[in-house]
């Protein structure tokens, strides 16, 4: 046997070992993830019969055409608007904070970043519930504003409450990529900008902002995507008054029993996610 042949055989054995290691998860993911995904796709082209069951015999795009109906269109538009507002607020709040973090001594900086991450690791439901208590009528926030003379605030079950909850939940997703990109700016570039008589805002607009754009894009997507599909936060803080896409999909399955529409809207949500992910990687998100 020649050396080349022996090597080939060893290579083949290695490949077998690799496949053997991956096989259990591979099979699991195909059976319990890929297959369910295909089922949802198939159902999104099915028809709901008058009895509430689903007929697969006649494939069509009816469920997707629902997007054109005012009720569904409003739900989608409302979800997009709330997600955009949430993302914008996160960006405006997180940018100065990330800037501040990046310009601290390493010890302080690490402490701040851990402090940002800890609430993010605590139970998601509890974090939303805390705001429910905070914003409740006669609750802590309301009595505070009353005491300082602004009067009672009744924010619970409004869009504002939903946005507050979403900002609170996803803020760390904005802070961390922004911090990473601000931390990498070469300080000499800013100095050069000032030396060339650039004003503060000019230096920010022409130098700092373009350099941190990958962080801005990555953070915005990491906030926008989960806000768009949020279900728990709008239910708890919005009181289910203003239906968002997440709640709409859940209703289609658990109460309306219209599986094709629920399935097609899940795919609309996934499409948003996929497009965003592609933009994220294009913007160099993988390096963050």
């Amino acid at each position: 046997m020649s050396v080349g042949e022996a090597e080939l055989q060893r290579d083949r054995a290695e490949r077998r070992r690799g496949l053997f290691l991956a096989l259990p998860s591979f099979v699991y993911m195909i059976l319990f993830f890929a297959l369910p995904l295909v089922i949802v796709l198939v159902y999104s082209f099915a028809t709901r019969t008058s009895s509430g069951s689903t007929s697969l015999s006649n494939w069509n795009l009816d469920a997707y055409r629902k997007l054109g109906e005012p009720i569904v269109r409003n739900v989608v538009v409302r979800s997009i608007v709330l997600a955009v507002i949430t993302t914008a607020i996160c960006l405006v709040v997180a940018y100065p904070f990330a800037w501040f973090c990046a310009h601290q001594r390493p010890n302080v900086r690490n402490l701040l970043l851990v402090a940002v991450m800890i609430p993010f690791w605590t139970n998601f439901l509890v974090r939303n519930y805390a705001w429910r208590i905070l914003l409740s009528t006669g609750g802590p926030l309301s009595s505070l504003t009353e005491r300082i003379g602004i009067g009672e605030t009744n924010l619970l079950f409004t869009k504002t409450a939903v946005v507050i909850g979403l900002v609170y939940a996803f803020l760390p997703f904005m802070i961390l990529p922004l911090y990473a990109s601000i931390d990498r700016i070469d300080g000499r570039l800013i100095e050069a900008g000032r030396d060339l008589y650039g004003s503060g805002s000019q230096t920010f607009r022409r130098i700092v902002l373009p350099l941190t754009m990958p962080g801005v894009i990555a953070g915005s997507i990491l906030v926008f995507v989960p806000s768009m599909g949020a279900y728990v936060t709008p239910e708890l803080l919005g009181g289910g008054k203003e239906t968002l896409l997440g709640s709409y999909i859940v209703t289609q399955f658990l109460t309306a029993r219209n599986w094709p529409v629920g399935a097609s809207m899940s795919f609309v949500l996934m499409a948003v996610m996929l497009v965003s992910t592609i933009i994220y990687f294009r913007a160099g998100g993988k390096n963050l």
Binding site: A22, S25, V225, M270
Partner: peptide, 29 residues
Amino acid sequence: FRGKRVFDALLYLPIIIPDVTMAVMMLMF
């Protein structure tokens, strides 16, 4: 190994897929 790229992509999807979509998938399955 054979199918490595497919496997890699398949393992990324659950991380980026929205909760609600994953829930719908499992229920229907």
